[in-house]
């Protein structure tokens, strides 16, 4: 059987909100080492990769590896019934066709349970090699959200260029053009306000803004976001989810015709 309890249930709510617009359904794979998900959007342009480690949960037990086929809009409907301060326990028997979610209020005076129907989903797994990136940029998640929101109102695609001057986001559209440059900045006493640019070599890539904006649905999960860029490779947009794990979004670039 599988059983996992997380006292900070709001994290689970935020995770599902972060990915439900991008992917309709997918297999959450449970194993003794934790929970993971890899799912592509319907156009196979971007991919969500979620890793939640067993030791990040208050309690975690999994006797047998199994995929749990989840329809994320339905998962979201049920998680919306959990209070923000509730502890959430997930339970499934081996080869079950449903996932039980139990919500406990923080003073344990309200307990509710819901069953989510599981689906059988044929999913393919993409092999994503570990690699060094030409540029890795850490910035406040709220700053990333602001940039992609602002630029989406101007254009459809963004050129992201990382140089020793900083990281520049450029777009253009019917109304005109926009450029936002962030410089390396660690002056704040608060680490979450830092912008850290780790540049091995300059790189410039073009991406569809609507996906980058969609990734910012994960903003509530982490104070910082990391962008990783290498020439001719998908960008990686990563949010650390506390001690629990991380959610990564991969987006294939736009390429010259």
């Amino acid at each position: 059987m599988f059983e996992a309890k997380i006292s900070q249930g709001s994290v689970l709510k935020k995770l599902v909100e972060a990915l439900k617009e991008l992917v309709t359904e997918g297999n959450i794979d449970v194993s003794p080492s934790g929970m993971s998900l890899q799912a592509m959007d319907s156009s196979h342009v971007c991919l969500v990769s979620l890793v939640l480690r067993d030791d990040g949960f208050d309690h975690f037990r999994c006797d047998r590896n199994m995929p749990m086929g989840i329809h994320f809009a339905n998962f979201s409907k049920i998680l919306k019934c959990a209070g923000n301060d509730d502890a959430i326990t997930l339970k499934a028997e081996d080869n079950a066709d449903q996932l039980t979610l139990m919500f406990e209020s923080s003073n344990q005076d309200r307990i509710s349970d819901f069953d989510l129907k599981l689906m059988s989903i044929e999913s393919e797994h993409l092999g994503i090699p570990d690699q060094d990136y030409s540029a890795e940029i850490k910035m406040p998640a709220s700053e990333y959200q602001r940039i992609v929101r602002d630029l989406t109102s101007i254009g459809d695609t963004v050129l992201i260029s990382a140089t020793k001057e900083g990281i520049k986001f450029s777009t253009s559209g019917d109304v005109g053009t926009a450029n936002v440059t962030l410089r390396h900045n660690t002056t704040s006493e608060k680490q979450e306000e830092h912008t850290i640019i780790d540049l091995k070599e300059p790189v410039a890539l073009t991406f569809a803004l609507r996906y980058l904006k969609n990734f910012s649905n994960a903003t509530a999960l982490a104070p910082q976001v990391k962008l990783s860029l290498t020439k001719d490779l998908p960008i990686v947009v990563e949010y650390q989810v506390g001690e629990l794990g991380n959610i990564r979004f991969y987006l294939a670039p736009k390429i010259d015709d």
């Binding site: 991919l47 393919e124 092999g127 569809a208 010259d256």
Partner: peptide
């Protein structure tokens, strides 16, 4: 305008 690449252009399905 530039073309949108697919993930399959970069990552192998297994």
């Amino acid at each position: 305008s530039p073309l949108q690449a697919h993930l399959y252009d970069y990552f192998l399905a297994s």
